[in-house]
C-alpha cells in the first residue's frame, strides 16, 4: 500500500460568493491518525463532506485507498467510514434498524454485521438501547450510535467530525483507544476537532487550515517543538492569525 489512504489535490469548493476551500492539497498515509484543525468556518467540515462523497467539489481530485472518488466511486466509498458533525441519524428508526440499514447499504455479511454490531454496541454501552428510536436518545447516545454505525463496515479509512461531542469521559477514552488501535493496525483516521489537547495526545500529525487554505501540515511532535510553550494551542493561534484572545478576555474582565 504505497499510495496514501487519502489524497486531495487542488480541491476547491465555493458556496455562492463564499469560498470554502481554495485548492486544498492533503495526503494522509495508512497507519496514521491525522488531526484536522482550523477555526470556525475554516472549511474542515466541507473538506470532510467532500472526502466522504456527500458534497461534490467544484474542482480537484480526491483519491481514497487508491481509487479516484469521481472515476471509481464504488471502491472509494466502500473504503470509508464517516461520522458527521452531530451524528445526523434517522431519528424515526431504532438503533437496531439503523445498524441493519448500514449493513445492507454496505452489503456486509449479515452474520459478521451482527457479531461486529454486538461487540461495538457493548463497547460503547448502548447494547440496552437497541430498540429505542433514535430521536428519543440523548446527544451522547446518538453520537455513540453514529460511531458504531461508522465502524460497522470495518472501514479502512475513518473520517470523524467532532467525534467526542456529547460523549462521556468513559466513552471518549474508549474512542481514543480504539482510534489508536485502528491506526496501529494500518487504518487511516482523519480526525477533525476543536479540542486541541485531544489532538495533541492522539494524533500523529496535525493539519491546520484557515479560510480554506492549508497553513500547516507536520507531525504533531514537530509542531509542538516549534511552539513557545509546547502546546498545540499556541501553534494554532499563531498560524490562524487569531486576535489577541487573552488581551480581549482581560479587557472584558476588567469591565466586570
Amino acid at each position: 500500500m504505497s499510495e496514501p489512504a487519502i489524497a486531495l489535490e487542488g480541491v476547491r469548493k465555493q458556496y455562492g460568493e463564499a469560498t470554502a476551500l481554495v485548492g486544498l492539497d492533503l495526503s494522509v498515509p495508512w497507519g496514521q491518525v491525522c488531526g484536522l484543525l482550523g477555526p470556525n468556518g475554516a472549511g474542515k467540515s466541507t473538506a470532510l463532506r467532500i472526502i466522504a462523497g456527500v458534497l461534490r467539489a467544484d474542482s480537484g481530485t480526491i483519491t481514497l485507498a487508491g481509487h479516484d472518488l469521481a472515476a471509481a466511486p464504488l471502491d472509494a466509498r466502500r473504503a470509508l467510514g464517516f461520522v458527521p458533525d452531530e451524528g445526523a441519524l434517522y431519528g424515526l428508526l431504532t438503533v437496531v434498524e439503523h445498524l441493519a440499514l448500514v449493513s445492507d447499504l454496505h452489503e456486509i455479511d449479515p452474520a459478521m454485521a451482527t457479531a461486529r454490531g454486538q461487540e461495538l454496541t457493548a463497547l460503547f454501552e448502548i447494547d440496552d438501547l437497541l430498540g429505542r428510536r433514535i430521536d428519543t436518545l440523548s446527544k451522547g447516545q446518538r453520537q455513540k450510535a453514529s460511531l458504531v454505525a461508522a465502524l460497522l463496515p470495518d472501514p479502512r479509512i475513518l473520517l470523524l467530525d467532532e467525534p467526542l461531542s456529547g460523549l462521556d469521559a468513559r466513552a471518549a477514552k474508549v474512542l481514543r483507544d480504539l482510534l489508536r488501535g485502528l491506526a496501529d493496525r494500518g487504518r487511516a483516521v482523519l480526525y477533525s476537532s476543536h479540542v486541541l489537547d485531544v489532538v495533541e495526545r492522539l494524533c500523529d500529525r496535525a493539519v491546520i487550515i484557515a479560510d480554506g487554505v492549508l497553513v500547516a501540515d507536520a507531525p504533531t511532535s514537530e509542531l509542538l517543538a516549534q511552539s513557545q510553550d509546547a502546546t498545540l494551542e499556541s501553534v494554532f493561534h499563531q498560524l490562524t492569525r487569531a486576535a489577541d484572545v487573552q488581551g480581549l478576555a482581560d479587557a472584558f474582565l476588567d469591565g466586570v
Partner: peptide, 14 residues
C-alpha cells in the same frame, strides 16, 4: 433518563 428501550436483538440485515 429512565426511558429504556424495548428489547431488541441485532440483525445484520433488514
Amino acid at each position: 433518563g429512565a426511558l429504556r428501550g424495548r428489547a431488541a436483538t441485532l440483525k445484520g440485515t433488514l
